[in-house]
């Protein structure tokens, strides 16, 4: 049910955009919708992060994944068990750019009564492929929003298209994101445990991103659109003086509607892991809590059993046992 619902939700977005574009609501789907979605994304994202940040981190709770820093002759694991800010930054860079923790992934099977643990890198690999190609595609799209196109963006585009297959050339990142999203989807359908834990909120973004990539590729190779017109529109959006030229293909508006849906959905969904990973206290803190006192802003005094109460209670038996006393 989770999957069906998500599937039809994405279909619904496509249909609505199709009808809208065919009815000539180009200003609504080309200007109002993306503006609104981008505003929701920006405000929602910032709001969520500020909301997280408004809760303090009362305790220093890194998950340590290597040797601690103790005696000078024992070499400590500076990235997996950092004690310095530089170490923490290193750990976070590895985590955010290269999915360090997921790289550690193992799979455990029961073979003739014994547990066998082995490496499991596929999820790591495809997650990396998916996220990096997503980033490249997003960056590559900037060429449509600015004129002249910055050198860096041109560079990304030419590297991405270096296969030189077809006309226009196929982007490597397009192939990779389809591969990535397909892998992430298939494991939710095929692997029983992953299927068991999957919710609508897991399928919806996959379908949505697949649809975005698919409409993008279709636009490039099948339903050719007026790229000059699109650029005029997008540059005008970026300059806050929107102009919608005539003759942009319908598929473009479907693509934009899907992207808008993703942006508007983003802050309220699990996709916020993008922001959350930066703030995760088990990863972004140094393991130095015995060397530097960590302050809990809401620390409050508690009632505890004072030694004097203890001695008052046990004075006689303590005396008989020859234990030293504060008061005889």
């Amino acid at each position: 049910m989770a999957m069906t619902f998500s599937f039809f939700a994405v279909i619904a977005i496509v249909v609505v955009a199709l009808i809208g574009a065919l009815s000539g609501l180009h200003f609504v789907f080309g200007v109002i919708l993306p503006y609104a979605a981008f505003a929701i994304f920006l405000v929602g994202f910032v709001n969520k992060v500020l909301n997280w940040a408004s809760s303090p981190v009362p305790f220093r709770i890194p998950t340590t994944a290597g040797q601690q820093k103790t005696l000078p002759w024992i070499s400590d694991s500076k990235l997996d068990n950092p004690t310095t800010t530089i170490g923490v930054i290193g750990r976070m860079v590895l985590e955010i750019l290269f999915f360090r923790s997921l790289f550690r992934n193992t799979s455990t099977e029961l073979r003739s009564g014994n547990l066998v643990h082995g490496p499991a890198k596929w999820l790591w690999l495809f997650a990396l492929i998916f996220h990096w190609s997503f980033l490249l595609i997003a960056l590559r799209h900037l060429r449509l929003f600015v004129e002249p196109v910055p050198f860096l963006i041109q560079g990304i585009e030419s590297i991405d298209g270096m296969l030189q297959v077809g006309s226009p050339p196929i982007y490597i990142s397009d192939l990779l994101i389809i591969a990535g999203v397909t892998f992430l989807f298939m494991r939710r359908v095929i692997l029983p445990r992953i299927k068991y834990i999957s919710l609508a909120a897991d399928f919806f973004p996959l379908f949505l991103i697949f649809a975005i990539a698919a409409t993008g590729i279709l636009m490039r190779f099948v339903f050719r659109v007026d790229i000059v017109g699109i650029k005029t529109l997008l540059v005008s959006l970026a300059n806050f003086s929107p102009v919608v030229p005539d003759g942009i293909g319908v598929i473009f508006f479907i693509h934009v509607a899907l992207v808008s849906a993703l942006m508007a959905y983003f802050p309220f969904s699990k996709l916020m892991h993008m922001g959350g990973v930066f703030l995760s206290p088990t990863r972004n803190m140094a393991n130095n809590s015995r060397a530097v006192r960590h302050i809990n802003p809401w620390n409050y005094p508690v009632k505890f059993h004072h030694y004097d109460e203890y001695e008052d209670h046990f004075r006689d038996v303590m005396k008989d046992a020859g234990l030293p006393l504060e008061k005889e």
Binding site: K48, L102, N105, L199, G276, S280
Partner: peptide
């Protein structure tokens, strides 16, 4: 808020 239910933890 941020679990994506990737399931890496399942058999750990």
């Amino acid at each position: 808020d941020i679990c994506v239910r990737c399931g890496a933890c399942a058999d750990k």
